[in-house]
Design a binder for these strands. Structure first.
Lengths: 240, 240
DNA sequence: ATAAAAGGAGCGAACGCTCGCTATATGCGG
DNA sequence: CCGCATATAGCGAGCGTTCGCTCCTTTTAT
């Protein structure tokens, strides 16, 4: 029943793997040469950054906090990034690229049926953001203060996710499986249901709701909302 | 036949009114005596705080920024609050108390029918957060960095809203109008649909989606998701 | 022995906040 | 209606602190 991700997701998405990609992407800016040392310390730095920032905000997280938490010195830290803005950029770019990578590669057997594809998207997104929760919370909460270039990345990443959802909705609508008045708007409404799991995870933990329960609830909620079994009820509100 | 809020909401909820209540609540801590001066300057201070904080974060908003934006001096600001934490607290308490006040007072004609009551809750919440968008964004985005007392308020406020939704869902389920497996979880899923309007308002503005369109979309999405399929028509207009 | 990596004192800038001062409004006897 | 005394509101230089960041030194690994 559990569609995705058991295959490749959990294996390919971990702090170590992501930090490895970050190192590649910023080889020229990172002064530490030995890969195993660089990756290990990058992981400690980014772990600490996410942990501290998600508690008190990135802006309020000082390099001295970071030094204390990682065990590195002030000078040591600067062998791994050129300053706080670069640290922010490293994390954000990696999140955006990972989500694009995962969601754009559905297993073939799922793509024939729009309903199955949609279920796969929902479960994959929630499981991915579960694994990388601190990364996604960071990107979500700090986005408003990003410098322009990073802001663009965050906006494009969100738009891409919604476009992927919208395309599947459109296929389903064309096949007569889904009944939708506005594909883009419906995709926009599905997105916050996916995000709530990582944004308000403390709330769901407090209530004892497991990830499997949550995934099932979102799938059933969304499916019921858009399936074409009977013609969709008219909108009750008349405006103006 | 737009249900709520046109009546009392827009009139009773404005920066001036809220700042008046803030002044009452903190009479002893605010050194400025004349009410009209205090309210006017409080409004300027809070407007500036929300505007700057929602762009760059509360922590990154300095008192010098605030002084420049309001036209007051550093010293002048301190006649209105004892420090940044109190400024935070003033805004948050007012948001929490306002949302509790509005949602707990549905018009009588709406409370007889759970479906109508739910539609009223959805529309009222979205319209309230539209009017006070900067306030709600502030409370939402800064909550994680709140001191313990303010954190409690934020958590309780969110829990209260969901409890109000859940109670209406329960009534509808008891009446056979709604089909739900888990009332609390369903309420928890409805909440982010209400919040998305103010959290990601830039996105909806970019797409040209009006508040009326959004309200209609959420109502239709939620209604379709939870309606009991067989007996009751999806949208009962007004029956006992 | 030599290069890579980590250390940490110190720099100028900016922070939250204070305090002694000035400017403005208000009340009142002449 | 005036001129003056008093209270209220506002001002902004300056305090101690902490920030991001640099740079020279020490430690570690090869």
């Amino acid at each position: 029943m559990s569609y995705p991700s058991r295959n490749g997701l959990t294996a390919n998405v971990s702090t170590e793997v992501l930090c490895g990609r970050i190192l590649e992407r910023h080889r020229d800016a990172i002064r530490v040469q030995k890969t195993h040392i660089a990756v290990a310390n990058l992981a400690r730095i980014i772990d600490a950054t996410l942990k501290l920032s998600n508690r008190q905000g990135f802006q309020a997280t000082t390099l001295r906090d970071l030094a204390k938490t990682t065990g590195l010195s002030m000078g040591g830290l600067y062998s791994y990034f050129s300053g706080k803005p670069m640290l922010l950029s490293m994390i954000l770019r990696e999140v955006a690229s990972t989500v694009a990578d995962v969601l754009s590669k559905p297993p073939q057997e799922v793509t024939i049926d729009a309903a199955a594809h949609l279920r796969w998207l929902i479960e994959s997104h929630i499981r991915l953001t579960e694994t990388l929760q601190p990364w996604f919370v960071f990107a979500y909460m700090e986005a408003k203060a990003f410098p322009p270039a990073e802001r663009r990345i965050a906006i494009d990443s969100e738009a891409l996710t919604e476009a992927i959802i919208a395309r599947v909705l459109e296929q389903g609508a064309a096949a007569g499986i889904f009944a939708l008045s506005d594909v883009g708007l419906t995709a926009a409404l599905i997105k916050p249901l996916l995000q709530d799991w990582y944004v308000k995870r403390a709330k769901y933990r407090r209530r004892g709701i497991s990830i499997d329960t949550y995934i099932a609830a979102v799938i059933s909620f969304v499916t019921a909302a858009i399936s074409a079994k009977e013609p969709t009820p008219a909108v009750p509100v008349d405006l103006a």
